[in-house]
Write a protein that binds this DNA or RNA. Structure first.
Lengths: 342, 342
DNA sequence: TACTTTCGTGTAATCGATTACATAAAACTT
DNA sequence: AAGTTTTATGTAATCGATTACACGAAAGTA
């Protein structure tokens, strides 16, 4: 009962060859209509299921694509993956998930594993910039596996990417804080070897300069993306001679930590201090004191990455297209930065 | 440069056969040490990578496992998947993600697709109970693909599951509300054809009875797991002759909606009204008015599911073991239900 | 009727690995 | 030195599908 049925079993039963069965099932026009119907009926009766592995080996296409992210249990990455899966599902691709846990070594391993598993493409958000794993990337490209970066990308010739305009995101958030009357705006940044953090920072800086505010190096703090890191950063900022009156944080979690710490110190938000985050994590909207944040449209980012992959995979033989899609960030203004009584 | 290197290429270069190359690379003891070293060195020099598809076809094991969830962008499911991936990674398995979007038809398709893709096992959280897709499940079992349910499970002979004790979770939360002085406790339930909702409800009911409180059918509202559904439900409850003074919600989102609606009506929490949710979504902890919730230890659930799979996959030839792992829920008591001034 | 197309299937190679069986060479007996 | 065992490797089948090529039969043409 549980034996796997192959085209040979069907062939034997009908006294024909496996080749004919294969052709019949694939709607090859050379097969007589009567034969085709008989084969299809018999296949159904025997509960035949095509072995995708055999097909994959023969065709060289596994119909699997790999997705590498730092971790999956973050709303942003989960949403991107959701977008990828939704877009690829109708095309018959399966999505394989890998997590790096922010380790370059792991990223390396994942890249190799996916290539070895013969995936038809890889979409990833880079964990960090280092030349430690250049060879892993080179391996992917040499094997002609389409590679697409989303959000956190790396500059590699011939590799497409889907990102948001982080500069603009940083600019918008900072400009908003300025418009709300803040004059000493601090910034929580991340590892600036990653473009996303670099560009948010540059956007922040530009907004200050464009509005006649001085850029103060002391106001830029490098934090991890965590609540505690945000608390610590606020602690540092408040010890400055001129403490800031607002924070634009590259991380919603750090922004939340900042808010918690500020409240702890009885600094009232937004009247005395404004906060804006980045990523539009679900909780920013749910809080009673909802947090202003820059949305990165992760679902759209995932969908778009998948679409870029599909374009790429079709024109395998033509010249490699390097597509850089840049999505527009959207600032969601909420209570943490809205001085209604202004 | 980009050509794929096979064992035949290595064999040709060294004037030996592919069989010898294969044995050398697999540390077969019958191979002369000198030959082994030479093969390994040459393989490395030629940048040989084993084609996992060929291996999979030959061995009948793809080293892929499939995970089916309603959606991936929910902290609970994402965390379970994280647990699964982490536990399986050292064993060389890759994780394929499928989403049903709460559609039985999609669940069906996913099951078939995964089986056709020759996955070595399937872990899933059932989307709904219906006999529409019994055949899909039967197909999985007939093909001897290990199947493991987590969280939302279905009763099928020989299928293992990893769940939490939802009865206890419901009981704990309700008992806690009673202890805080609430006497008219309402309950937001879900589709009770799913055990998880049925059992949380039963736990709720039992806690009432054990504490001498009457069970009131009107206090049980069936809601979707969304903020808006929670608001609507509160609206209904407040129209009752004797409105409740607490809610135990099977969904954190509905609990949040309830809280928002109650605040809107100037009902103060927790002094006048207490709320407890289920799932311990990240935002419940982050809110200023943090929400009491039952934790389901999703990470542990994922890890455990993976472990059950690993046990199962090894003893393929022995009798099928049906393992039912039941994790203990943990109530996280927070502000939404703590009457400090009590 | 003899000759050319067309049609439908069969034969066998192929994808890239593993492995039971066969075998030649080397090593060990006595 | 002849016989036996061990060692290292080659031969060929196999996993389950697809497909170029071959070929007999049927159909069309003159």
């Amino acid at each position: 009962m549980s034996e796997k049925v192959t085209i040979y079993d069907i062939a034997e039963k009908l006294n024909i060859t496996a080749a004919t069965v294969s052709r019949a099932l694939n709607n090859n026009p050379k097969i007589k209509e009567a034969t085709r119907e008989l084969v299809i009926k018999t296949a159904a009766a025997m509960n035949y299921k095509q072995n995708k592995l055999a097909l994959a080996l023969k065709s060289g296409r596994s119909n699997n694509i790999g997705v590498i992210v730092p971790r999956i249990d973050s709303n942003f990455f989960a949403s991107v993956i959701r977008g990828i899966e939704e877009e690829l599902y109708p095309h018959g691709y399966q999505v394989i998930i890998c997590q790096t846990h922010e380790s370059i070594k792991r990223e390396n391993e994942n890249l190799h594993t996916l290539v070895d598993a013969q995936v038809d493409g890889i979409m990833m958000s880079v964990t960090g910039i280092s030349d430690e794993n250049d060879s892993a990337f080179r391996n992917v490209l040499e094997k002609n596996v389409p590679l697409i970066f989303f959000d956190r990308s790396k500059h590699i010739d011939g590799v497409s990417s889907v990102t948001i305009n982080d500069f603009k995101g940083g600019y918008l958030a900072t400009k908003h804080l300025i418009d709300e009357g803040c004059r000493n705006i601090a910034h929580f940044s991340g590892d600036q070897s990653l473009d996303i953090f670099k560009n948010r920072f540059l956007g922040y800086k530009q907004a200050l300069l464009d509005n006649g505010l001085p850029f103060n190096e002391e106001y830029v703090i490098f934090t991890k993306s965590s609540v505690d890191a945000g608390k610590d950063a606020v602690d540092k900022l408040l010890q400055l001679q001129t403490p800031p009156d607002a924070i634009f944080s590259s991380s919603d979690f750090a922004a939340l930590g900042a808010i918690q710490e500020l409240k702890e110190r009885n600094i009232s938000i937004p009247s005395e201090f404004c906060v804006a985050g980045f990523s539009n994590e679900p909780f920013t909207k749910f809080m009673e004191l909802s947090i202003t944040s820059v949305d990165q449209s992760p679902l759209e980012m995932g969908r778009m990455s998948a679409r870029v992959f599909l374009e790429q995979v079709d024109k395998t033989d033509t010249i490699k297209i390097e597509k850089k899609v840049v999505l527009a960030p959207e600032l969601h203004i909420r209570k943490s930065s809205t001085r209604t009584n202004f």
